[in-house]
């Protein structure tokens, strides 16, 4: 991924965005919408889509039909995105950092700039978890221990080259420590490993900690501000580490979709996001809502792309 290409993408997006009008959004949706989730049912992508589904159907009086197209960490679905109908009634979930890191690594059937996200509506911040009886009560304890014992601190996380993995590498870098990342096949087994004391700590998503109640302690969260669901957990920023990140989830349409369609879908997603009931439920579950509609997509993607490229270099993913 060259910077030049990114720059062109940004320039392109910036050029056309003002042309979009809100008129098409008035009628949308007038019939049921197929919403393809590129992952298996039960994961965070599915759960957040289910939250949207409930609000969407109440708000617009139209069905939001969730379909699954899992495979290759999402690549199976994303490589087919542009062959879908482009009328806005078939939309697809899209995730970061997946859609930036995957094409960087190998030919996965799509390129980052082939995909058209229209709205990134939330993210699940990375966070460090330890068991409730852990000897580490603060991030400082853990970092100090890691300094004295290079490599000994083990972090469980979901998958290799994932957001969890990026965050762990980033923290190593920022704090000048060496820790060992243990990849698991998903958030559930990764959290189980922390609960069972198999690893010393876990770099997981906030959402996975919500259901654990007192069994787990969250040491720090990679968000800009403290989360409403966890007012006592400090952010990494407060503790002096510039670490904000997690898995971002959004909605994408095929490249051929018109500006009106892109805007209409984005507006509908934003409307759901603004629903107080939706907001409360999502936040209680540990999701952090974002306000990244189609208008802001260009800048947001450029910024993230830069960040992930730096992270990828640290993880040793071959940049093309």
């Amino acid at each position: 991924m060259s910077l030049k290409l990114t720059a062109i993408t940004v320039a392109f997006l910036a050029g056309v965005v003002p042309a979009a009008t809100a008129q098409a959004a008035d009628g949308y949706p007038t019939k049921s919408v197929e919403y393809i989730i590129p992952f298996n049912a039960g994961g965070e992508s599915d759960v957040s889509a289910r939250f949207q589904q409930a609000t969407w159907e109440k708000m617009f009086g139209q069905q939001l039909v969730i379909q699954y197209m899992a495979g290759a960490g999402g690549a199976q679905a994303w490589s087919q995105l542009n062959s879908l109908p482009d009328d806005g009634y078939t939309i697809m979930g899209i995730n970061l950092p997946h859609t930036v890191l995957q094409p960087m690594e190998k030919d996965v059937g799509y390129k980052t700039e082939d995909l058209t996200p229209v709205n990134y509506f939330h993210y699940t911040p990375d966070a460090i978890f330890v068991g409730k009886d852990s000897q580490f009560q603060t991030l400082k304890d853990l970092v100090d221990y890691a300094k004295q014992n290079p490599g000994l601190v083990t972090f469980s996380g979901s998958g290799s080259n994932s957001s969890n993995n990026l965050a762990q590498a980033r923290l190593d870098d920022l704090a000048g420590i060496t820790t060992t990342y243990i990849p698991f096949s998903g958030t559930s087994p990764a959290i189980t490993a922390v609960l069972g004391g198999q690893t010393i700590a876990g770099f997981n998503y906030v959402t996975s900690g919500v259901s654990q109640g007192d069994a787990l302690k969250m040491l720090a969260v990679a968000a800009d501000e403290r989360l409403p669901a966890f007012p006592d957990v400090p952010t990494f920023k407060e503790l002096g580490y510039d670490l904000v990140g997690g898995a971002y989830r959004g909605v994408a349409v095929p490249k051929s979709a018109s500006e009106e369609v892109r805007k209409a879908v984005s507006d509908a997603v934003s409307k759901v996001n603004a629903d107080p009931d939706f907001k409360k439920k999502m936040e209680d579950a540990g999701f952090v809502l974002t306000d990244l509609p189609y208008e802001k997509m260009g800048t947001f993607m450029a910024e993230k792309q830069k960040e992930y490229e730096a992270g990828a270099a640290k993880l040793g993913i071959a940049a093309k």
Partner: peptide, 13 residues
Amino acid sequence: LGALLVQGIKIGP
């Protein structure tokens, strides 16, 4: 589990 979350039921201990 996801369905329960959407229903607003807190799973866990």
